[in-house]
Structures are given as structure tokens and as C-alpha cells.
Simulated assay, not measured.
Amino acid sequence: MSNDPKEAALRYASTSAEAFRDNADLVGSLGATEWENATGCAKWDMRALEGHIVGEAVWFPHLIREVVDGEPPLPGEVWGELAELPGDDLASRIRGAADELVRNVENASPDDLQKPADLGWMTIPLWQGLFVAVMEGVYHNWDARASRDPRAAIPTAWALVLAERMPVMAGFLARQEELQDAKGRYLLEVGDGVGPVNLKVDGQVVVEGGSVSSPDATLNLSADQYVRLIVGRFPLGPAIDRGEVSLSGDRRRAESLNHVFKGIANE
């Protein structure tokens, strides 16, 4: 994949927009009793999850306007109002925001996309910040889909975009207090064109492309399984038992990766 800022920003915007639109379709089909159902994000039921998704969908295109045009941030009360929208209105806002996200990136210049964007917890170039939109759109759409089907999968095309920056995100998402029990070298043989991934846990988590000799455990994963593993949404034990993932080496150590990568808001 190209790392040209404009091409990457368009790829991130179009992928997240596809996921947001898919989520809007799901929201439009929800029955009255489904809003209280559990989701793939352990701390949120469907109502809370969709309140978060609509906020993120609206926030990212506005962030581009803040960076490019100098617009002020949206008022704080907007987020609570969005979260309380009835289902049809919520779906409409998500879908409209997805369209605006792509349009705003298309209209941004390469220089605009290099400008710093304040994400609240870090400031990075705008084009890189748009990768977070992919994470929000794709992972939380999966969370919503998993409410109906716990065996739901992330579409391969979306998973491949997420996989681009998993080596960076893995170190950020790893739980430091769990590293000692998971100490070792892991080889993730990731399909769908991703290739081998070398994951080392030794006081920190380092993830690099390429193979490694004599790993403690080797796992064969699809792109979907790989990107869900890193964010705490792919329990390895049941998948190994069902034959969905093949393992060679130390099973206990392999399953310890689920403790290292528990995810955010997903304990």
C-alpha cells in the first residue's frame, strides 16, 4: 500500500466511510428490543455503542474542517444529543457523515493533510489521524454486528487496511502488566496477502513483518483474525478448539496474547 499522504488519507477515509455506512444499515434494521443487547465491546450495549459510533462518524469530517479551514470544535452538548437520536435519525447522521468524510479528504490538499491534528490524546499529521477513523468505523461496526452474530468477521478488504498499521498499534494497545507472563517470540502466519508477522514480548511489544526462527508459538491467522486479536476481539482458545486457527508450539503462551491484547473498553 502507498504511504503517499493523499493516497493513504483517501484509503483511510473510504474504508472508514464504508464501515460507517454498513453500520447505518444495521442501525436502520434494529428492532426495539435490540438496543439493550450486548455487543462485541464488553462495556457497551447497543445503545451506548451506537451513541459512540455516531459521535465518531460526525467528529472526523469536522476535524478535517478544523485543521483545514480553522473551524472551531463542535459544542460539547452535540455528542449527548447525537447519542439520544432515534434509530432512523441516528442512521441518517452516520450515513451523511460518512459521505462528508470522503468529500472533505478529496478536497484537502497534500499540505493540508500534513497539518497537525489534535486527537485529544495525541497530535499527529491529519492523514495519519484518519487511520483512527478506520479503527473506529471498522472495529465498532464489528462490535455491532457481533451483537447478532458472535462469529461475525471483518471484511478482508477492511482488515487489510487495518493491518497496515498493526505493528505500530500493537505496542500502543498492549497491557504492560501482562507482558511478563507472555514473554516470548511469536510467529503469526497471516493470510490474505499480509504475510508473516514477528511478535516479540520482552518488557515491551515489538511487531515487525517477516519470519523468526524457533518461535515459542506459531499461529496461522486470517487478516480478520489478526486485526481482531490485536484489539482484544478474537479469543484464541475457542478458535483453536474449533479448528479455525492452527497452532504449533506452546498453547498456554499463545493464549496469553489475549491478556496482553485485551482491547480498550473491552475487559
Rank of each mutant, 00 (worst) to 15 (best):
S2P: 15
S2L: 11
P5T: 03
P5R: 05
P5C: 01
K6V: 15
A17L: 03
E18S: 13
E18D: 14
R21L: 12
V27F: 10
G28K: 08
G28H: 07
G28V: 04
S29M: 12
G31E: 14
A32M: 03
T33E: 13
W35D: 04
W35Y: 11
G40F: 13
G40P: 09
A42V: 10
A42R: 13
A42L: 11
M46N: 12
E50T: 14
E50N: 14
E50W: 11
G51T: 06
V54E: 08
E56Q: 04
A57C: 04
W59P: 04
W59Q: 05
F60E: 06
L63Y: 01
I64A: 00
V67I: 04
V67Y: 02
E71G: 00
L74Q: 02
P75V: 01
E77C: 01
W79R: 04
G80R: 06
E81F: 08
L82H: 02
L82W: 04
E84D: 15
P86E: 14
D89C: 00
D89M: 06
L90I: 02
S92A: 15
R93A: 12
R95L: 06
G96K: 08
G96T: 07
V102H: 12
R103I: 00
V105W: 03
A108N: 08
A108G: 10
S109G: 07
P110V: 11
L113D: 04
L119T: 09
M122R: 15
M122V: 14
P125N: 02
P125E: 02
G129T: 09
G129D: 09
L130A: 11
A133R: 06
W142P: 03
D143V: 04
A146C: 12
A152G: 09
P155I: 08
T156L: 07
T156N: 03
A157I: 03
L160W: 12
V161L: 08
M166R: 06
V168H: 09
G171M: 10
G171W: 13
E178K: 15
L179V: 10
Q180T: 15
R185N: 07
R185C: 03
Y186A: 12
E189L: 08
V197P: 05
V197I: 14
Q204S: 14
V205K: 10
V206I: 12
V206P: 05
G209N: 12
S211T: 08
S211N: 10
S213Y: 03
P215G: 04
A217H: 11
A217G: 11
L219P: 01
L219D: 01
N220Q: 01
A223M: 09
D224A: 00
D224C: 01
Y226Q: 04
V227D: 01
L229I: 04
V231M: 08
P238F: 10
P238H: 05
P238C: 07
I240M: 10
I240C: 03
G243C: 05
G243E: 08
V245H: 01
V245E: 01
S248V: 12
S248L: 08
R252K: 14
S256E: 13
N258P: 00
N258H: 02
N258M: 00
K262D: 09
G263I: 01
G263L: 05
E267C: 02
